[in-house]
Amino acid sequence: MFIVEYLKEVTNAVKSLATGMKLTGYYFTHHKEIITQEYPDNRATLKMADRFKGEVVMPHDANNEHACTGCTSCELACPNGSIKVITKFDINADGKKKKAVDQHIYRLDMCTMCGLCIEACPTDAIKMANTFEHSVPDRNMLVKRLNNNGSKIREGVE
């Protein structure tokens, strides 16, 4: 029967629309399901993943010592040239010349957070920090020097 089919079609259509409305209606009335994080407000409780690749940092210990030998492995591993290691020659106690890092320049503005430099580093001198609030008023501020002023290489790191 044409009329019966026509009516069936109309009821099925209305039913399918009603199920959709039921679903959105459910979320409209159940505010607990809201998943939005109110970002600047939840700063205190916000915890980034441990391995989150935010920027490259060079950890220094209490004596202002780092583990970077200035071998430039990271510079070679970096696909887009965002690391530049400027080396110098230290003269140690025996009077021998030894290669050391003078300035470890890291350009956050060019970094793609691929993590290849961390992989390449033989002494684990650099690592990825999980900071993420990188916005600055001037892009020159994104060019960072990773080794601290007056820092030197830790004893025993070759």
Binding site: T24, G25, Y27, F28, H31, E33, I34, I35, T36, E38
Partner: peptide
């Protein structure tokens, strides 16, 4: 606001 609540946001 109606749209937001239906879309599970504020």
């Amino acid at each position: 606001r109606v749209a937001a609540f239906m879309q599970i946001r504020f």
